[in-house]
Simulated scan of single mutants.
Amino acid sequence: MAVPPRRSPVRGRVTPHSCRSRALAALLAAAALAGLAGCERRPLADARFTQVPEADPTRGQALLAQYQCGSCHAIPEVPASEGAAGPTLAAFGRRSYIAGEVPNLPANLIAWIESPQALVPGTPMPDMGVSPRDARDIAAYLMSLR
């Protein structure tokens, strides 16, 4: 048996928008609460997800210039890094994904810097022959960019 629709409190009649408005308000409230609940799970600056073990971010900053990463990328505080062929690396440590596909975690970033083609075949980012140690240091600098 169907439940009769509620009457509009303004004029005592049913309007097609009165039921929709209540449903929309409830949906928006639920979405807001769900969003707030998710904020407490993993803070963006959680060190477990941003620190690169046994790495030197200062050395990584210098290596970005040495490998001429600035030819394609704009990189904060790295000389001659005003490239526009690739995305800016400003606030890289706050990004969720590398190349829009790989979760931005230190181990993934190190692997990306060493061999981007192995992680995302066909990516425009070339393999630059970066050593594992250099990749760790570069990743440490990039993860520090917030």
Rank of each mutant, 00 (worst) to 15 (best):
I75W: 02
L89D: 03
I75A: 01
A30T: 13
L105A: 07
G122R: 06
Y97F: 15
L33P: 06
A25D: 11
A29I: 07
D56I: 05
A74E: 12
L33C: 14
A47D: 10
V52S: 07
P57C: 07
R22C: 13
P103E: 06
H73Y: 03
R42E: 09
R59N: 11
L119F: 01
H17A: 12
G122Y: 02
R20L: 13
S18Q: 15
A74R: 14
P116N: 04
W112S: 00
Y67I: 07
A90C: 03
G83F: 07
G70R: 03
A107V: 11
T88Y: 04
Y67M: 07
A31L: 15
G122H: 08
P126K: 08
T50Y: 04
C39H: 12
A32H: 01
A74G: 11
G122D: 01
A107Q: 13
Q61F: 01
R42P: 00
A80G: 06
C39W: 10
H17M: 12
I110V: 15
D127T: 15
L28H: 06
F92D: 02
P79N: 06
A91V: 13
H73K: 02
I98P: 01
Y67L: 04
A34Y: 09
R41M: 02
P57S: 11
G60K: 00
V102E: 02
T58V: 14
D56W: 03
G100W: 11
A90Q: 14
A31C: 14
A37M: 15
S81T: 05
G83E: 04
W112K: 03
L28M: 13
G86H: 03
A111P: 01
A31Y: 05
F49H: 12
A26N: 09
P43E: 08
L27F: 12
R94A: 15
L105Y: 03
A25P: 01
A84V: 13
A85G: 07
P126G: 05
Q61N: 02
P79D: 09
A37E: 14
G60Y: 04
P43D: 10
Q68M: 12
G38Y: 04
R22P: 02
